[in-house]
């Protein structure tokens, strides 16, 4: 190991500072910004890794890196090529945020015929576009950090674990567990819909803490029982559309949303 990777220490153990790059495809760049957005821990965070490529924040990037964080969904050929090139360079490829993990909000346009979508925004002008796809549709993804936006604490945990060579796992249980631990009033009791019972935890029930229902931005928890949730929602008098809106908003529940649409169509026939 060379000097360039000499870093700080963690519990007295010298840390290896992996060379790290950040990239963005189609996205709001919010997840990258979240990485810079926790001023109190930014300096120790930067002590954990050596950032060698971060176009939004620095000039002079390089292809010599080990970890690549990639934000955004893929819909154009040039993005596909860039993603494959990154995969070739990186030892660890991390999908950063729900656009990268699931396609994110960007998938919502794919409810429509692509020609109609293009004409609605650009008229007759030739503008290339394709379906919004998650990274793993095109390359192998080693790690996923969920959320729209991601939580900086989770990014830090992932980076620390990589630096220490430890396994990285996301919680398997739903947001409700965190929400109850936070002693929030349940939104269903306030007459608001919430996807907390089926959504993967790890955000510390960010939205319910603010008395806003969960929109499922982190995708399904393991063993998510979406049909059960539909029942609860119906018992509370929420329209089917309300459930569907939340299921399809951030892309993580796309499979469930499609099944839901199918059942609604069949029910209507």
């Amino acid at each position: 190991m060379t000097d360039r990777n000499a870093g700080g220490t963690f519990l007295g153990v010298p840390l290896y500072r992996p060379r790290t790059a950040f990239f963005e495809l189609a996205s709001c760049e919010g997840c990258q910004l979240q990485v810079l957005n926790n001023e109190a821990t930014l300096a120790p965070f930067l002590g954990l890794l050596e950032i060698v490529n971060f176009r939004e924040a620095m000039t002079g990037g390089t292809d010599d890196y080990e970890i690549a964080f990639v934000e955004g969904s893929v819909s154009r050929k040039d993005e596909e090529d860039l993603l494959k090139e990154i995969r070739g360079n990186a030892r660890v490829l991390v999908a950063l945020g729900s656009c990268a993990c699931f396609g994110g909000v960007n998938r919502l346009k794919d409810r429509f015929d692509p020609d109609w979508t293009r004409k609605t925004v650009y008229g007759e002008a030739p503008v290339e576009s394709g379906r919004a796809r998650p990274l793993e549709d095109l390359v192998a993804v080693d790690l996923k950090i969920y959320g729209c936006p991601v939580k900086k604490e989770e990014v830090e945990k992932v980076v620390t674990n990589i630096a220490l060579g430890k396994a990285v796992v996301s919680p398997k249980y739903p947001v409700c567990m965190e929400c109850k631990a936070n002693e929030n009033i349940c939104l269903f009791d306030l007459g608001e819909p919430c996807l907390g019972p089926v959504t993967r935890a790890g955000c510390d029930s960010w939205c319910p803490n603010s008395r806003a229902g969960c929109w499922g931005c982190r995708g399904p928890a393991e063993d998510a029982n979406v049909e059960q949730l539909e029942k609860i929602m119906q018992e509370h008098g929420f329209a089917q559309e309300t459930i569907l809106d939340r299921l399809e908003c951030f892309g993580g529940f796309a499979r469930f949303a499609e099944a839901f649409r199918r059942r609604r169509r069949e029910g209507a026939e």
Partner: peptide, 15 residues
Amino acid sequence: TPRFFEAMLVGKRWE
């Protein structure tokens, strides 16, 4: 790359 927000909103409820 465009993300087509002006199209994706069509048909969605105000909430």
